[in-house]
Design a protein around this nucleic acid. Structure first.
Lengths: 343, 343
DNA sequence: AGCCGACATGTAATCCATTACATGAAGGAT
DNA sequence: ATCCTTCATGTAATGGATTACATGTCGGCT
């Protein structure tokens, strides 16, 4: 493999000069630069990143921790992160945490200490990950979508509580009085906040929050777990006429199970999802849901991370992006025409 | 940051001994090893990967080129790659090529020459990427799902031609005589081979291959492009009674468009997909399709790459994994009961 | 006793790019 | 003519781990 020495020899200059040309440091005569550039081109020389990283004590790699990138929500966020990181000159290392339900502190510390990563974006931290705080000053870490409350670490997300409240208020305005929720048994703040928003709306309307209306799906937001949760809700003695779900895939599972139980959506049951992934408008009825700007969340978290890595003074700590509740075909007035409605 | 010198000093040994302990080289007295280990634990020491990589001339990173990891097919394959790579001690760098329709030779060479990657798995190469061959001996490269024919580079895939043939033969056995295909206008071998398989089956049955039965969707396998292609096929003077699609998402688009045109699936139109991604059984009618072992394709390509990186002599060049045609609810006999059938 | 081999451990070269510091030439000021 | 500044470029130290080679100790054999 050709190294900087070879290039220097070929160009008849010293290695320092070659390095200066590569890194754009001034103080190089145009004709010298031309000689160096042509030597570089001749050999197809690429600076060895291991050597550069060793010397500069950086890696130009950022670490991304995600629950599961096969989930369409996360893959959209990841697209945003990866696209921006590439234009900023960073490579991305993506790790699935799967259902471990907690970040692996050892792994994170290892990757930082080993100089493998300059920063990290986590889409997977939850309530129990307070240990992150220990590293707040030392490592550049950004929490995206999920974050730990009251922690001095930068994060970016939508206002889950408010969005959930709006959704449920919409259902109430449609005449629904028994409204169920399918949430997740994981420890993510987003699930908890969406549940809070649901309870907010119920309380405002003077509706009781019954335990039989709250179903906890398994931690992975899977279609199957949505079906299971729906079955519990819909086969109870006094079933809900509307169900708010904390994710679209769960909502899709609810709709499937409702169909199996002979219920028509939205005539017999209104369903709301959350996230607005691509699949919400591939099949009828189109899903009513909360549109989350996934891609922008990804880009935003990368920008935030970049600012922190480079110690930009005004890099924010908490950034909130706007959501949009979209009413499509899975929500209808209670005992109404069966047509979807807008309040 | 603590380095190997600090550990050596603390343990009262030389750096060489510390290195030997870390790397499991024999010839270290148990009590010496214990001293070193406790020093490592005390400092939470992690070897600097940049330094190690520089010295060993490796990176323990593998590069993955994929058209778009938001596509459920690719994300499944990627899961397989990432899971195995992690157990083999490699990190994965994933790059989306998006619709550039060709691999970026410059980028690939750059990453290899810069010692950023030890190997590469491409899910995105196509007919035009013959340049890969130049690097066959120099870089470890594995082609997954897609590959360039007649090239001495390892690849792993299913037998697309055969699988497509089986699917179309099934439709013919169901009495269909006018069978359309929605393929993609990209240059991927899989699309080409699926088209070949379609033509094989037609020819065997003595059916003419008409241009009006072949629709080219845009290169990205998108839902929207499936709809568009279906419209062309179904609004032609003599429309097909069955459509074979080279991907599930395209098939979903075809079904959606058929519905819009007032056609019932499978009563009025049979539809077959390809890949069997998760979404095929989330909505009725469940999609008839070819089940491709995505996850295993991913694992297999990583294993193949690993074998090549480590110069295992019997690492294969062409590996083919079995597929499985699954008949579900979107295929029916022509003018039949409307129920799905098995041949 | 003398010699050799086996084995544990240390010393120092090496991988390659970056950069602080050194050098030297050219041009300007007095 | 002399000195000082400026600027381009070179020299060499540096980052941290690996590893070929060197050293030293101990036991066994004759």
């Amino acid at each position: 493999m050709v190294n900087i020495q070879d290039v220097a020899r070929e160009a008849g200059v010293s290695v320092a000069t070659v390095s200066r040309v590569i890194n754009g440091t001034r103080c190089v005569l145009p004709e010298t630069e031309a000689k160096v550039r042509s030597a570089i081109a001749k050999f197809g020389y690429q600076p060895n990143l291991s050597a550069r990283n060793l010397r500069k004590n950086e890696s130009r790699i950022i670490l991304i921790l995600t629950p599961n990138f096969s989930n369409p929500y996360y893959s959209k966020v990841l697209s945003g992160i990866c696209d921006l990181s590439r234009t900023l000159g960073y490579s991305t290392l993506i790790y699935n945490t799967y259902d471990s339900n907690a970040l692996d502190e050892k792994l994170v510390v290892k990757l930082f200490e080993a100089n493998r990563a300059d920063g990290m974006i986590t889409l997977a931290c939850n309530r129990d990950d307070r240990w992150l705080e220990k590293y707040a000053g030392r490592y550049a870490i950004v929490q995206c979508s999920e974050y730990v409350e009251d922690m001095e670490l930068p994060h970016i997300s939508v206002d889950n509580r408010k969005a959930a409240g709006e959704s449920v208020r919409h259902l109430i305005a449609g005449g629904h009085r028994r409204i169920g929720i399918v949430t997740s048994s994981n420890s993510y703040l987003s699930s908890a906040n969406r549940l809070r928003g649901y309870l907010d709306a119920l309380e405002e309307a003077g509706l009781p929050a019954e335990n039989t209306l709250i179903a906890y799906a398994s931690a992975d937001y899977s279609f199957a777990s949505g079906k299971q949760a729906a079955r519990k809700l819909l086969t109870s003695p006094n079933p809900p006429s509307a169900i708010f779900c904390v994710s679209d895939i769960l909502a899709l599972g609810v709709i499937a199970e409702a169909g199996k139980l002979g219920l028509k959506v939205p005539e017999d049951l209104s369903v709301m999802g959350f996230d607005d992934v691509d699949y919400t408008t591939m099949f009828h009825p189109y899903l009513s849901t909360v549109a989350v700007p996934c891609y922008e969340l990804g880009r935003g978290s990368m920008q935030l991370l970049y600012d922190h890595i480079n110690h930009k003074p005004d890099a924010g700590i908490g950034v909130y992006l706007p959501h949009q509740v979209v009413y499509r075909e899975t929500t209808a007035r209670k005992n109404g025409s069966g047509k979807h409605f807008n309040t």
